[in-house]
Write a protein that binds this DNA or RNA. Structure first.
Lengths: 202, 202
DNA sequence: ATAACCATGTAAATGGTTACATGATTAG
DNA sequence: CTAATCATGTAACCATTTACATGGTTAT
């Protein structure tokens, strides 16, 4: 999903500047399932303006650079709704921490514990933060996504807490079947819904 | 984490060809938290060979192109262990589906239901697949990661199943607080462990 | 006083994917 | 007989991040 569509989505909720849109992807609710930085947002907004999918009002500010507030046009809303008719790509997860924990036996105990606890702390942080939010007045989509986030952070936190001690104190070097099973455990490529969905978009 | 390190990791489990390494990122256990394609794996292996972090044995095959089987060298193992001493970057999630479900009110009912059910199906597939695997003989790292995957797919599946009907039959257009709360719910930037971790790597 | 925040924008560098090029073999 | 699998490799292309450029304001 390109950054232009992401911007249209944010703007469908209300007017915003490039600076504000970036914050939503950095710290706001979208940060949990998408990211975007200045270098992609500003050019995207320029293109959207050229295509007249958004309009722009310059707010002159005292002592600060002018603030460009963008609004969705009718054409922009139509365009956004059209892009919502497509089939979404499968989720992508990149977890360096999981990769490293997989290779726990190559990491020294102190560092391993640090990685584990730092990772756990992140889940605890977001779990508690999401638990504390007020849900009144949210759209069904917003509510569903927030609930999903809560279930995710709370569920993973529980798993990490429950397995911490057994994991950190487990013996090293008992993975005699790691290579064998690596070749063994392939998902059958054809039945995989991931494969299906990928094929479906072509 | 660059593809070279990913390759070293796979090779620490046993010898493999570029073709086989790609399979592990496409269909094997790594696929759940990292991806890599030919275009990045082959050049990575060439570079590793230049740096003498891996060695290569050519297996001549009848009727097939020669198979290049790579092995980790002592220097390669050292290099891998060194790269495991770093602090992992925070997880990255890209979910187009979540983005689209967030904007449920801009999607027509039939398509929304299709998106939801297809998404659910994926979680069910992986949940059942992981439930059916044999855990004997796995290293602690491998076990932890597999358990995490099981908790993830099963937990999210449960959430999606439990909220399906309420979500799909909910009223449209009641999200009067969506914009307000979008600006409202920013995590405090300084306390966020994500921010801390990002800063920590610089 | 020093860091962080507000605010925009561009250019270079990065790091990948996709498509191309090639071709025999095996399974349905 | 057709599709998929095995098997390697390169080049063009793509999107995005990072760093640069600029500078007043506010909070610690």
């Amino acid at each position: 999903m390109d950054v232009k569509t992401l911007c249209l989505g944010v703007l469908s909720l209300g007017d915003a500047s490039g600076y504000e849109i970036r914050k939503m992807f950095e710290e706001g609710p979208f940060a949990h399932f998408h990211r975007a930085s200045y270098g992609s947002i500003y050019p995207a907004l320029s293109k959207l303006l050229d295509e007249e999918l958004v309009s722009c009002t310059v707010e002159t500010q005292d002592g600060r650079p002018d603030k460009k507030v963008y609004s969705l046009t009718k054409a922009g809303l139509d365009q956004f709704r059209t892009s919502m008719t497509k089939t979404p790509d499968p989720d992508q997860v990149r977890s360096e921490t999981m990769f490293m924990l997989f290779f726990a036996d190559h990491i020294d105990d102190a560092h391993l514990q640090d990685i584990y606890d730092t990772y756990t702390e992140q889940f605890r942080f977001y779990s508690e933060m999401l638990a504390g939010l007020d849900d009144t007045g949210l759209s069904r989509g917003r509510l569903l996504v927030r609930g999903f986030g809560r279930a995710y952070y709370a569920g993973m936190l529980k798993y990490l807490e429950e397995h911490r001690d057994a994991f950190l104190s487990a013996e090293k070097g008992t993975g005699w079947r790691d290579l064998e099973s690596l070749r063994d455990c392939f998902d059958t490529a054809d039945d995989s819904p991931l494969e299906k969905q990928v094929r479906g978009t072509k």
